[in-house]
Design a protein around this nucleic acid. Structure first.
Lengths: 204, 204
DNA sequence: ACCTGAACACCGTTCAAGT
DNA sequence: ACCTGAACACCGTTCAAGT
């Protein structure tokens, strides 16, 4: 708040005329950024869905703070809704049953958001120590690589696999694995179609 | 930091003798909490894996702040590693190919952590307005329920499905869908077995 | 070495006062 | 209604000084 207020040559209090709190400001910025996503319609529906999720990931990854708060935001701006709609449409076009597709969109967005938040560096407070992504990973790397084979036998035995692959390879695999699982896994028996009450004509 | 320092009847500066920063403190607390997870060995390997992930989710969901930072933490304490090992073991016991199992553990933990962070309420600053989970959801609910059928046709048509189901139903489906996808999706062609260099005898 | 009080450099938000 | 300066109530972290 103080940052954007300064950019606007005013005090932070002024912003509260347009926005109720920081979350609302973040939501507005995210929706704006998402509006700039152009649609690339190439390849199969899986390819397109992967591309769309990757675009979304890139937008969040480019703005550290946003990715972090996007998890808690549950934004509902027009561009966010349009993105959801496009993803749902692609799943349906792929022949995925509607219920699975609906819940699947949520899962895919959650994973993309979380992945972005994970990769986002902790803001690089000053110069000197930017705390790279690799640096953070290396702590886990070391732990896994030196894992005690008696206490954690599986980790020790598969360390190379666990730590292998590039970010991009893992991300692409993650998307495809999830899409496959979504398409193949039926919803629970009691169908989740019942809502408290959905008014036919909302006031507007 | 100030909070736990007060609990210990001292100033916040004293903690820096034991911990380098807040992240390290969070990691230590998380590892401690994870140590208290008892193993429930009931049902199939899928049931057991689901149970384990749900236990992990519950621990994080019970401690708002932790869930939030667990995403960026990449903790590597002994109890975290033990949890990873157990999950990897269950996937392998289920006949999942080792490479997919390795990357799958990462995905499952990411989803569980992100789900916990999402559900965690924004700290309830004061009394009066605790900002319930439902209250936050209702903003999305309203947006989806009143979605413009021309701009977002799929959302409008499947609103009931999108918003349906309990938290528990959706969580269980998410876990099972991901396990199915992990088991079914092969790693990229160039096998991710090559690591920069893994020293055989690390200094200790 | 471990611990401390005090300060530094930040936050988001509120509120009375202006126009 | 919109905007503001100033204050309030917090943070994490550092640092010189103690023992």
């Amino acid at each position: 708040m103080r940052r954007v207020a300064q950019e606007l040559d005013t005090g932070p209090a002024s912003l509260y005329a347009y926005v109720r709190n920081t979350a609302e400001l973040h939501a507005a910025v995210l929706d704006e950024l998402l509006g700039a996503l152009e649609v690339r319609a190439r390849g199969s529906w899986v390819d397109r869905l992967e591309q769309l999720l990757t675009d979304y990931l890139m937008v969040l990854a480019g703005h550290t703070g946003l990715a972090r708060s996007a998890l808690l935001l549950r934004p509902s701006g027009p561009n966010v809704l349009a993105l959801y709609d496009r993803m749902l449409g692609l799943l349906l076009a792929g022949g995925v049953e509607a219920g699975r597709a609906s819940w699947g969109v949520d899962l895919l967005v959650l994973t993309a958001t979380a992945t972005a938040a994970e990769h986002a560096a902790p803001e690089a407070t000053d110069a000197d120590a930017p705390v790279t992504d690799d640096e953070k990973a290396s702590a886990v790397d070391r732990a896994v690589r030196t894992a005690d084979p008696t206490r954690t036998p599986h980790l020790a035995h598969h360390a190379a696999l666990l730590l292998g692959g590039t970010h991009e390879q893992r991300w692409r695999w993650t998307v495809r694995a999830q899409i496959a699982g979504i398409a193949a896994t039926p919803l629970p028996d009691a169908p989740a179609t019942a809502l408290p009450d959905a008014p036919n004509s909302p006031e507007d």
